[in-house]
Write a protein that binds this DNA or RNA. Sequence first.
RNA 1: GACCCCAUCGUCUAGAGGCCUAGGACACCAGGUUUUCAUCCUGGUAACACGGGUUCGAAUCCCGUUGGGGUUGCCA
Length: 525
Amino acid sequence: MSSVRVRFAPSPTGNVHIGNIRAAIFNWLFARHEGGKFLLRVEDTDLERSTPEAVRTLLESMQWLGLDYDEESMYQTSQLAAHRQAAERLIAEGKAYRSAKGGTGEATVFRIPWDAEQVPGVSVVGPAELDVHQETPVTIDRRGVNYALVSAKGKPMPQAACLAGFRDLEIFDAQGTSLFRLADRLNGICAGTDSAVIEHAAKLCYTRRQIQYTDMVKGNLAKPLDSMQDQVIVRSDGAPVFHLANVCDDIAQGTTHIVRGDDHVENTYRHIFLFHALGATPPRYAHLPMIVNAQGKPYSKRDGDAYVGDFRSKGFLAEALFNYLTLLGWSPGEDREKLTRAELISLFTLERCQSSSAQMDLRKLTNLNGQYLAEMAPDAFVALCREHAAALPWYAGADPAYFDRVARLMQSRTKVFSQVSEWDCLFVDIPAYDEKAAAKFLKDESVRQTLARVAEALKTCTFDVAGIEAAIHAVTQAARIEQGHFNQPIRVAVTGRAVGAGLYETLELLGRDRTLRRLEHALSR
RNA sequence: GACCCCAUCGUCUAGAGGCCUAGGACACCAGGUUUUCAUCCUGGUAACACGGGUUCGAAUCCCGUUGGGGUUGCCA
């Protein structure tokens, strides 16, 4: 029995983003592969958007894709007291402080610990020197160090970093005279009772430290502490910030591995410090590459196509979308792409995840979907066709048995259920004509004469596939047209389109009356 | 600006120094099968961002450049 516990932690907004659900899929696959637990945590702290309706949409999307979760799901709003308690505890232990910068009132700020070496992964990089803009005073208080670098044009470029970034800090002027030593005033500054403003500073000398962790996808990642800042964990209005809530909940849920989007790597360093401050061991991390749109840019609200529900309503199968999404940023390492869920579970490892972003290709998804549709049991296929046809104007009046026959005939050439709407040409009385096809196949006068003769022949033949074929053949042979070469004009005349199912089957399906009416109509156009 | 990450055909990817005159899939093009449409089969076009190194040998290791992305104290 594996001890792996992973979670999917979406905020329910009414739509599940394709990038989010991909993260859910990878978490699920990892958990199932390892024989661990896949947990759900609904981050519903945005009361405006996190309506019961939005939560239902989320659950439906997960169920549709077969992402079943273990144990009771956690709702983040239920953890509010725990989050506040954690913040109070950090303040009481001197690991966080209140600060009024920017907001209205005091926020709670988590301090990157001064004794950072206590945290596994933190190490000394070595001595560091920074030339700073001499006109800009260096200010130091418990919130950190503010200074300005010098741009190529000699202008000041303001920087801010946490206090912990500057171990052994000593500040010198242009002549090399020491102006300030942090060690002399450390206690007061950390306590918030002391602060310093240093004019005419030219150089910052200190010991640089960094925090390092091993990402299961991206490998070793590190960040110098002097490029980090203390983190607000409770807003001035008392609401816990994502970082605190997230870490607290992962501790509460016993998360062992966090598998999430690339955009969280920077947060990870801060979260590791938070885990330790709260007396917990940080989980292992795996950061997945982003999914980008057709322009190669990150999906934004404007990209309407990027929600799970859209793919469902456009007629993609859950299994096909699931399969396709696993191939975005991951591959089994062999030349197979269409994989069953069982195969995916057994093949999936985080180590085989890609570290660069991936672009969705609707055409490839469509192709894969077509493969899944082709091998569906006909009855199941017909049932889903009905679902997708239900809203179509011609469906209500359609004969169920006739619909059934059409669906079976069309299965092998359907790639997405949205194509069901094109079947209107088999259901309405007179179909709409594709003018390009009509111009190509129905314009010629000799063609029209032959069509008239075909119509005559179809009036009396046996109206089944064999009879229709024989009747048409007889006419075309008399007209000295090569076998089959007259099928396209007939197809366009009868269905209005140049593509469709086998012609004789189609005519048999339509029946004699409708076929003749359509031929007549085509010739009168 | 600073910090961090990324970089193989149009797209998704294989590739962990010699198996690579770079393989597969989608898309595209050309043939073929099918009396027609779709399917299917065969073949083809097409990539290691650029420049330096290391090495007998680099798509694979190192450095730089360029390009893209992420983050940058009260979004999640």
